[in-house]
Design a protein around this nucleic acid. Structure first.
Lengths: 233, 233
DNA sequence: GTCTATAAATAGATAGAC
DNA sequence: GTCTATCTATTTATAGAC
């Protein structure tokens, strides 16, 4: 497997990841990928067979890296509190290390995983299962109060993907001089999420697990939010 | 402006919103929209001029509805704590009332607002500005501790969009029998976010604003997360 | 306002020389 | 492994009859 002037397969892989992240699967043309990679379009089909297989390879690599880390954390011997903290740190640092991940995953969520294969979907499920296992362990040992695992998952994953994926739209808005977004770094995000997770998961030191909502009681509302929207009841 | 058998403009508008939400801007064909709306394809161009203008109209209507509500909340005379709570409730209930909103907005964030006009981007900025004003007011009155506004915004908006936008991918994963997702309703989400916001924003009753991280200290890590990935510093 | 027919451009993918 | 040339299908959009 010689690697001359420049490994064309790798060049395609990285150019495609950047294009898919910036424009989405169907808006990205193979011509564009080839031009960006500096290779001939036919090489994409030589190496990957189709645009979809190329895309799937990219997504799978991304989610595999995340699941590998979160699984190791869940299976470790640290306490549940530290495991949650490590989960957050792992997820954020993966998002930071692979700038293409957040936009691609946001789109894939929005699209219902339509472009993915069953194996990759299972890997994605595995990331959630890692957190689920940690939360269950915390329940067993009494370290955590009862929380909804999916909501906890979304409260870690959602802000992280929004934060790292929103760079371009923040720039676009900034150029309109409407708002000045204060700068944020990954360390601040990790710190924020850790605090949030700890405060949400650990029993309140001054009372029951569900403290009174200080000054944030429910308001009377005019709009009706009666019907549940389908499957999430 | 007579509305006979069925207003074709409205039919197109709603069919397009559903298609754009499910497949994204470029993966959605005008043929598909027309078929779903039960009208002729030429009617799309008669009413909207182009696929992009149709898309922009849809997005603008969505974000305008949100900004109208959040602005009114920020300008109201309730206390900051209640305003944050109302902001959360407004955002969640808009996401629930318009099922097309979360996927469309997730994609638009991922794409950097590429398909949007400046006016719509400004409206999006206005939603954030509503929360920003509330947070500043809370700082002035001493009700809130110092938090990063953008992180707070993402921690409300991110989980909400993930929650409502992830229905299809959860179904896809569920069909693989890998994980059973526990059911969640919007009320639980609102409750969860409210608690999260209150605990993050209000000064700790038992000490300084930044409590010790109970069992969640930083771990030594082997992976390096040194370089900042470009524009998000 | 609504339809048919079609223009014009671009997409993903392949054949085959080298 | 890499390139040129091309096939085929699909896409946005429009012209023009009714």
């Amino acid at each position: 497997m010689p690697r001359e002037a420049r490994d064309s397969r790798r060049a395609i892989f990285e150019a495609a990841a950047a294009e898919f992240a910036a424009r989405g699967f169907s808006a990205t043309g193979v011509d564009r990928i080839a031009r960006r990679a500096g290779v001939n379009k036919a090489m994409i089909y030589y190496h990957f067979g189709s645009k979809q297989r190329l895309y799937r390879d990219i997504v799978r690599e991304i989610v595999l890296a995340i699941r590998t880390r979160t699984r190791a954390i869940a299976a470790g011997d640290a306490g549940p509190g530290r495991k949650v903290s490590s989960f957050i740190e792992a997820f954020v640092s993966e998002a930071q290390a692979r700038p293409h991940m957040p936009p691609i995953m946001m789109r894939e969520v929005a699209e219902g995983g339509r472009h993915l294969d069953a194996g990759t979907l299972r890997v994605i499920a595995g990331v959630f299962e890692s957190l689920l296992a940690i939360l269950k362990e915390g329940r067993r040992t009494g370290a955590f109060i009862r929380v909804h695992p999916l909501l906890m998952y979304f409260t870690i994953v959602g802000p992280t993907m929004m934060f790292f994926g929103s760079g371009p739209i923040r720039s676009a808005i900034l150029s309109l001089a409407a708002v000045g977004f204060p700068e944020v770094g990954p360390e601040l995000l990790i710190e924020h999420l850790r605090k949030m997770a700890v405060r949400t998961l650990t029993p309140s030191p001054h009372g029951a697990g569900t403290p009174a909502r200080a000054g944030a009681g429910p308001r009377s509302r005019s709009r009706s939010a009666t019907t549940s929207s389908g499957d999430q009841a």
